[in-house]
């Protein structure tokens, strides 16, 4: 007899040790997320996968599933909190969707659509951040970084390179690159690295491939991310 919990009223089976996110994804039920990627250990930093269990909010990617729990992932209250978190991410960086090659296939954007976010709402910080085009095959636009640390984790855990790290703290937190000059081109990074293919936004992009897909046919143009799934799942097709 397998164990199960309720997610928005629907029974989700799970095995001991699975998180709410693991079990939901396995059952084909979408919970929005940005810093989570099933290939890596749960991180819990973006907070977009917030769900409510009996009045307590937890991140679905880190909370263990337990028998009989009732999880709310779709109430207006939860969606409103997610929208606020997404809006914070949008005002923190410089997310100029009309000028971004990732637009239409961007997980940040798609999750914002899913959560019903229409505008960034808060006051923009308009930080001044550089673009690093020093690498022959890959460009890094720090304006679009949301500090999910997926590239940090991929480079460290799968590529065995430790090319990336997070430096600073608070709003000064930022992605840094391990090379003598601090530039990507001087690092051991390669376009074949896993870290080149996990970014949920347009912060890390392959060069020479901009705007390949016509508007209307891009990943999230026709159907929401809850149906289409993560960028990651489609990234592999391209690689």
């Amino acid at each position: 007899m397998s164990k199960s919990f309720k997610l928005d009223g629907r029974a989700i089976p799970f095995e001991t040790g699975q998180t709410i996110m693991d079990a939901a994804l396995a059952a084909g039920v979408y919970i929005p997320h940005l810093c989570h990627n099933p290939e890596f250990a749960p991180h819990g930093s973006c907070r977009v996968c917030l769900v409510d269990i009996g009045g307590r909010q937890v991140s679905a990617c880190t909370a263990a599933a337990s028998e009989g729990m009732e999880v709310d992932s779709s109430s207006e209250a939860i969606q409103a909190t997610r929208r606020a978190i997404l809006q914070m991410l949008f005002v923190e960086g410089n997310h100029v969707c009309p000028a971004c090659e990732k637009s239409g296939a961007c997980q940040l954007q798609a999750v914002a659509y899913y959560a019903g976010m229409l505008a960034p709402h808060f006051t923009h910080f308009f930080p001044r951040r550089p673009v690093d085009a020093s690498h022959s095959d890959v460009i890094i636009d720090f304006n679009r970084c949301i500090l999910c640390e997926l590239c940090v984790r991929a480079s460290r855990d799968l590529d065995g390179k430790r090319v990336f790290a997070i430096s600073g703290r608070g709003l000064e937190s930022h992605l840094v690159i391990d090379s003598p000059s601090g530039l990507l081109g001087d690092s051991s990074f390669a376009v074949g690295d896993k870290a080149a293919h996990v970014c949920p936004t347009g912060a890390i992009l392959p060069k020479g491939r901009g705007y390949e897909t016509p508007i209307g046919e891009r990943l999230y143009d026709r159907e929401p991310i809850s149906i289409v799934g993560d960028v990651r799942a489609h990234e592999e097709e391209v690689v």
Partner: peptide, 15 residues
């Protein structure tokens, strides 16, 4: 003093 790890504290605190 926010460590900057999670969105609400990092951005919300500054806002």
């Amino acid at each position: 003093e926010s460590c900057g790890f999670c969105t609400p504290c990092r951005v919300g605190g500054a806002l």
